[in-house]
Each structure stands twice: as C-alpha cells, then as structure tokens.
Simulated assay, not measured.
Amino acid sequence: MDNVQKLDIPGARDTVEVDGVLGVFYKVRVGGQVVKRTKGGWAVPMRSGTTSKLSSRGILPGFQKIYLDDVPIYAIGAHVDTALRVLMFVPFVLIFLNPIVGLPLAVILFFMNVSVVKNPQMPRPVRIILPVVNTLVGALILFLLAGLLA
C-alpha cells in the first residue's frame, strides 16, 4: 500500500490525493499542489466551475474519514482491524506507574504505535508484538528513572 491515496472524485478539475495515509498526519493535494485547510476543509475546484469542500471527521489520529460535501469517500486506516486499534492504546497503562512522566511517554508511544499498526508491509505478528514491547520498554524506563531519582 502506498502512502498516497488518490481520491475518486468525479467532476474534479485535477487529481485529488491524500498524502500520508499510513501515518498520523496527512496532507491533501489537488493537482500535485498541497492545499491549505480553510474553514474546516479543503477547496476542490470542479470542472463545472464550482468548488466542492473536502473535509475530515474522526477522533482517533490517523483514522479519520474524508468527506466530499458531507458524503464519505475514503476512510483513512480502514484496513486496520479493531484488535490492532485497541493495542495502540496499551502504552496508556504507563500513566498508572507514574502519572507525571508516564503521560508524555504514553502519548509518544501511542503515536509510534499508530504508524506501526497501519503499516501493511509489516507482518501481522510484528504489528501485534511491537506495541506491547514498546510499552514494556517504557515501563522499564519509568522504573529506572524512579530508581535513579529515589
């Protein structure tokens, strides 16, 4: 799977692509040029002379749905199953070990896990094991820091 997804928008003047679909953050390109997000969406010029609005909705970073004039046309990260999406959140158990240092570490590991579970070139067992191993290493770091600071 490529990191760039061409969107099928009938009537668009140029090709519309989403760059970065395998990561956390993405950009919208129209005709090869990155379009800035304005007023909650991206303007897509149509052949008829009008402009359509491309927007995104979703809570999970990297797993939003793309809409064209309030009609869903693409779901970023739809290829990731529910079990892997749940595993992305495993680092948040570090907050219970040390809330002050555990929270920023958990957020960093969470964003790393998003990229890991969305990578279709990685074998499934690796996509399952890596979030757990990252969390265990994070816990080890917290225990070592607690020992050094005590």
Rank of each mutant, 00 (worst) to 15 (best):
L7V: 07
I9C: 06
I9Y: 06
P10E: 13
G11S: 01
A12V: 00
T15E: 09
T15V: 11
V16T: 04
V16R: 04
V16M: 06
D19V: 15
G20I: 11
G20M: 10
V24E: 00
F25R: 12
V28N: 03
V30L: 10
V30T: 04
G31W: 03
R37I: 14
K39T: 12
A43M: 09
V44Q: 02
S48M: 09
T50I: 11
T50W: 11
T51C: 08
T51H: 05
S52A: 12
K53G: 05
L54M: 12
S55G: 09
S55D: 01
S56H: 15
G58M: 08
L60M: 09
G62D: 05
G62M: 09
G62Y: 08
F63R: 07
F63G: 11
Y67N: 13
D70P: 11
G77M: 06
D81G: 14
D81Q: 14
T82D: 14
L84Y: 05
L84W: 01
L84T: 06
R85I: 15
L87G: 03
F89E: 00
P91K: 06
F92G: 01
L94C: 07
L94R: 10
I100F: 15
V101H: 14
P104F: 00
L105K: 02
A106D: 04
V107K: 05
I108H: 04
L109V: 03
F110R: 01
S115K: 11
V116S: 01
